[in-house]
Computed example of a mutant assay.
Amino acid sequence: MNLEKVVFAFVILLAATLNFGFVYGGIDNPAHHHLWELFAATTVNLIAVVLKFGDRTHIGAVQQAASLVALLQLFAAALVWFFMAPKDGGPPDVDALSSIVSLAAGALLANGVSVVILIADTTIQRR
């Protein structure tokens, strides 16, 4: 068993599940979307991007591109949260929250592509 591949697969799957956990719920209900979950999803996606540096294969390049797209979407969601949240520290209003969740949903799609590529790459590997 290759420990590097196990760690990478773990991080890719964790990024997708954290992102799903943030997106899941009513798009207009702040109780369903927590700031720390968005932070965790962004951090794990950043780790996934860093882990993929140095891979010179074509599948690795597509995997890296999908990870970068997810990271960009999550950074955009975090920026919207930062600039649109009330200054008293409360949750963002419905309009801002729907934008945040929509951006995170785009990142979830990119994470889904990463998972599909990971599964495809795993199935074509020879021993």
Rank of each mutant, 00 (worst) to 15 (best):
M1I: 07
N2Y: 10
N2D: 14
N2V: 09
E4I: 12
E4D: 14
A9P: 08
V11H: 03
L13K: 05
L14W: 02
A15F: 06
T17P: 00
T17C: 03
L18A: 00
G21H: 01
F22T: 07
V23L: 03
G25L: 05
I27Y: 15
D28P: 02
P30G: 04
A31G: 00
A31V: 01
A31H: 03
L35K: 14
L35V: 07
L38R: 03
A40W: 15
A41K: 05
T42Q: 12
T43H: 00
N45R: 00
L46Y: 11
L46K: 06
I47C: 09
L51N: 03
G54T: 01
T57C: 05
H58G: 02
H58S: 05
A61T: 10
V62D: 11
Q64L: 15
A65D: 11
A66N: 08
L68F: 12
V69H: 00
L71V: 00
L72S: 11
Q73H: 05
L74W: 04
F75S: 04
F75Q: 07
F75Y: 10
A76Y: 10
A77G: 00
L79F: 13
W81E: 12
M84K: 15
P91D: 14
P91S: 15
V94H: 14
A96W: 09
S102H: 13
A104T: 07
G106R: 03
L109D: 04
L109G: 03
N111H: 11
G112S: 13
V115G: 12
I117F: 10
L118H: 06
L118T: 12
A120P: 01
T122E: 15
T123S: 08
T123P: 01
I124H: 04
I124T: 09
I124A: 04
Q125I: 13
R127N: 11
